[in-house]
């Protein structure tokens, strides 16, 4: 497109400045106020001097990491098989992968309550085959939250990897075979490094979705497992302490953006590998 079309960006840009950038600035400003003083870092000091608060931050960032890794382990094979499937099967597989993304998160999380509950299928199975005598506590536990997050967010991992894999030149893998490398070695030394940009893109999307997955975290984690989104919500609506909630929001955003920036940097380095 020629640059004479660039004014078309303006309406959306105006909307974003008025209703995205401006609210974030107001949020930042509010986080720097308190009842006593006009400008103060008191809210931030309060957050970082309270073990309870920064352990929530740490738990949240770590939860995202664990869920993202599990997504990668299961998501890469789906993308790999999908990239090699015939056009017809590829459509079927992608359809199955995006079906959960488009089904409401509340509905999907609800489905897991039916499965993970004390009388849920998993417990009936475990009791039935004598794996355990007591029903397992799967709901309201971190492994439960991770499991559900993986199901809810995995498509975000699969699609970017698939995009890169379908664009890979199949001659590269053939060349690797001709030169005597087996399938595993080819995967490890050729396909995987070349698909890293997709892997990183998938990790970024999955990670930022997992840490902010309010519905899944609250419904599966319950009231005792508190992550950052619930922390913000409780401070804002429950305790009605807006300046402190604003400070927590800012800290959370900066932390998530830092992780995303780190991943994006790794992504840029991996692209230079592919281009060499």
């Amino acid at each position: 497109m020629n640059s004479n079309q660039s004014p078309l960006v303006l309406p959306l840009a105006a909307l974003f400045v008025a209703f995205f950038v401006a609210p974030l600035i107001v949020l930042l400003a509010l986080s720097l106020t308190a009842d006593t003083a006009a400008w103060t870092a008191a809210n931030y000091v309060k957050f970082f001097t309270d073990r309870f608060n920064y352990s929530i931050l740490w738990d949240t960032l770590f939860l995202g990491l664990k869920a993202t890794l599990v997504c990668l382990v299961f998501g890469y094979p789906i993308a790999w098989i999908c990239a090699r499937a015939s056009a017809r099967w590829q459509s079927v597989l992608i359809f199955l992968v995006i079906l959960p993304v488009l089904t409401s998160v509340v509905v999907r999380t609800f489905a897991w309550i039916v499965i993970l509950g004390r009388q849920g299928i998993l417990n009936q199975l475990a009791l039935g085959i004598g794996l355990t005598r007591e029903p397992l506590r799967l709901l309201y536990s971190e492994p439960g939250v991770i499991m559900v997050l993986v199901q809810v967010q995995m498509p975000l991992m699969v699609l970017p990897i698939l995009t890169v894999l379908t664009k890979l030149d199949p001659n590269l893998a053939d060349a690797s075979h001709v030169l005597g490398a087996g399938e595993w070695r080819t995967l490890w030394r050729v396909t995987l490094p070349l698909s890293l940009p997709g892997v990183i893109a998938g990790c970024i999307l999955t990670y930022s979705a997992c840490v902010t997955a309010f519905v899944t975290q609250t419904l599966i984690g319950g009231a005792r497992l508190i992550y950052m989104p619930l922390n913000i919500y409780q401070q804002a609506i429950g305790a009605n302490n807006w300046p402190f909630a604003a400070a927590i929001s800012v800290i959370f955003m900066v932390a998530v953006l830092a992780v995303v920036a780190l991943l994006a940097m790794m992504g840029r380095r991996s692209e230079s590998y592919g281009g060499a």
């Binding site: 209703f19 609210p23 974030l24 804002a236 929001s249």
Partner: peptide, 27 residues
């Protein structure tokens, strides 16, 4: 400028949506 707009328009996908929702309420 166009690249910057692209990044700006895509950023809601990466930023915690709940923090944005709260910011919009304050606003």
């Amino acid at each position: 400028l166009a690249r910057a707009c692209d990044v700006l328009f895509m950023s809601p996908l990466l930023l915690p949506a709940l923090a944005f929702g709260f910011a919009a309420l304050i606003f």
